[in-house]
Nucleic acid binder design. Sequence first.
DNA 1: GAGTGGTCTAGACCACCAG
DNA 2: TGGTGGTCTAGACCACTCA
Lengths: 235, 235
Amino acid sequence: MTYASKKKVGFLEIKQEVISRVHKGIWPTGSLLPTEKDLAQEFGCARATVNRALRELAEQGLVDRKRKSGTRVRTIPARYAKFEIEIVRQTIKDMGADYRYALVHKSVSPAPDWVASQLAMSAQQQVMHIKCMHYADNRAFQFEERWINIATVPRILEADLDHQSPNEWLIAEVPFSDAEITLSAIGADVTLAEFLDTSPGTPLFRLERTTWLDGQVITYVRMTYRPNHTMTTQY
Amino acid sequence: MTYASKKKVGFLEIKQEVISRVHKGIWPTGSLLPTEKDLAQEFGCARATVNRALRELAEQGLVDRKRKSGTRVRTIPARYAKFEIEIVRQTIKDMGADYRYALVHKSVSPAPDWVASQLAMSAQQQVMHIKCMHYADNRAFQFEERWINIATVPRILEADLDHQSPNEWLIAEVPFSDAEITLSAIGADVTLAEFLDTSPGTPLFRLERTTWLDGQVITYVRMTYRPNHTMTTQY
DNA sequence: GAGTGGTCTAGACCACCAG
DNA sequence: TGGTGGTCTAGACCACTCA
């Protein structure tokens, strides 16, 4: 049964068919696809329908599109892994465990040089420095150390961080436009070992994040997880 | 100047305006947005234009959309970090370093139980087991250990893996539909320490990936990076 | 200059689901 | 069962870029 004889052809069908033809080698990697107009004719649908299908395939990394040049099968399909940035409370609740938060340290002082550099602020501006713990069923889950640029978030000074984690306060109160995340493996130092109930040198998973609003850094945070923590995603 | 008086309002402008209103609290979290029809009237554009803007904001996690219920601002905006899955050769070249690949071990044998379980295949089916190294400027960069389900990729038996990394061969020859990635921090064992030119116990960043084609596992791979490796992304 | 994708329109019908 | 978003259409004009 040809496409032209079908009642209705949707963009999802077109996506599937394109993927299928690429997989089968009908449209080899690097080759040029027919124009939207031609495909619309073949599939018996409007060009907008083909456009949506191809646009989504381009976002997804299977093809490259350029005006005038046309649509080409990418030599190496771009592949992305999308990790959801969860609130640690949610992560723990999703595990079916009880969540507990504890503020360990809070101070306001001029930024040390390396923090000033990390926050892209001039040295000696005021920053709030926070250390806190997140527990799952009363066992250490994550140690969080954070610096907040007070100039950009002055209201943080009035936040009740004894009972609410800084992350949750910030999410509720401060929108952000950009963020950078870095993942790494580090060895526990004495402090981390103590908080995370392990021994110094133990390999730990760490997530660092810097967030900006309109070019201004809001906060830099380091979250270090208990031993054997993993991050998983499907794509 | 009101929107209705503008010459043309595009979906990007609408996206920006919606984001802005949510940030400003005009549409608080949890609140219901006007219907597409109403917004189209306010912005002086077609409903399809509003639809595209809201659809993309929903994908991006700012709002939830349901038929009949309407469009709602998410209480906690979903945030995702998108990491590009690179070919290690590309990663190294992007660093401006020379890339070198070396095959360390290759064998074909019945799958050990844990591998069979990982590959979701019946025990004792044949698998190819590969160990290889990737170097940047002749210094150890990544140790790769991989198991390939021969039943799903029989042609791997004829691949020249002495000169081409299994990943590059697979990418070129075998499409895949799904993948699962796990990130973790591990301590170097004696073998890893030797290959990655470090000492046992050193914290190392590890990426594991299983890929499927139509429900059949193709391969499971563990890539362990040299000390101090990081993965970074912006969003 | 001309061909391609990018976007928009005005209208239509459909699918889902809360009341 | 009515209101909402989901999708499609047929056409149009625009923007980019290759030759």
